[in-house]
Design a protein around this nucleic acid. Structure first.
Lengths: 123, 123
DNA sequence: GAGAATACATAGAAGTGCAAGGGTTGGGAC
DNA sequence: GTCCCAACCCTTGCACTTCTATGTATTCTC
């Protein structure tokens, strides 16, 4: 199950099959989680997820930015323009109170569902 | 993490009850897994997943049947009509060799991805 | 000044699952 | 016997997310 949001372009890619999306819906949660530690700009959110996932979850920009905008629209994130560590113009996002609540909710929902799936797969 | 598999009627921030679904992309895998033990008809596939997930994963018929047809079209399943334990006409599905291979592949991919997500969420 | 990396963004296409319909048949309640 | 529910199957239309591809601008390095 490939997942999608995270492009896993198989390095030695044999799999021509459409490895389109799996675990769809986890992206928002991961983004919220990344911002749970403090404000980050978009690019760094992707870096964060990539690093902590052990280089497994590559968040594509075409998925990342729509996700950020979506979450901001829902009032879970807020943003301001600033300057990145590399001295570039960047938009910094941080969690709102609602975002923090949502993170907690999605987190426990993830535990519930992934646990359920794991049980089936181990049957 | 909500996933898409659940209904999101939270338009405009109204976090309503979401139906129990499945992480998007995992449905095919779960169906393959259910059939890994032997032939089952559609209705029983849903039962199997529901039971083994501990009543968490309710596979809706509108998701189940298209999934079965999809998998059959890809050559991962084959089917014949028969009679269910309740003496009703039912279509029984079983894995093909390709389906068995696919199950193994998705299974390990699931382990890889869910592990990666878990690492991020525990960070 | 060329090129890479950082950084944001959108459009188009694809895929998946949900909701909401529809249908047949058999067994038990009455 | 009749009637209703449960067990079965199916399809269409839509919502949502993500991918691929592309476009822009800026800064650092060579």
């Amino acid at each position: 199950m490939p997942n999608a949001a995270y492009s896993h372009k198989e390095i030695m890619g044999e799999n021509k099959e459409r490895s389109t999306g799996v675990l769809q819906g986890t992206l928002d949660m991961l983004v919220l989680k990344a911002l749970g530690r403090g404000p980050l700009h978009g690019y760094d959110v992707a870096e964060y997820i990539l690093t902590w996932s052990g280089d497994v979850l590559h968040v594509e920009e075409g998925a990342l930015y729509p996700a950020l905008h979506r979450l901001e629209l829902r009032g879970l994130l807020a943003s301001e323009w600033g300057v990145s560590a590399n001295n570039r113009r960047a938009k910094f996002y941080h969690l709102t109170a609602a975002g923090r609540k949502q993170l907690a909710a999605e987190s426990s929902e993830w535990a519930r569902l992934s646990g359920a799936i794991a049980r089936v797969m181990e049957a």
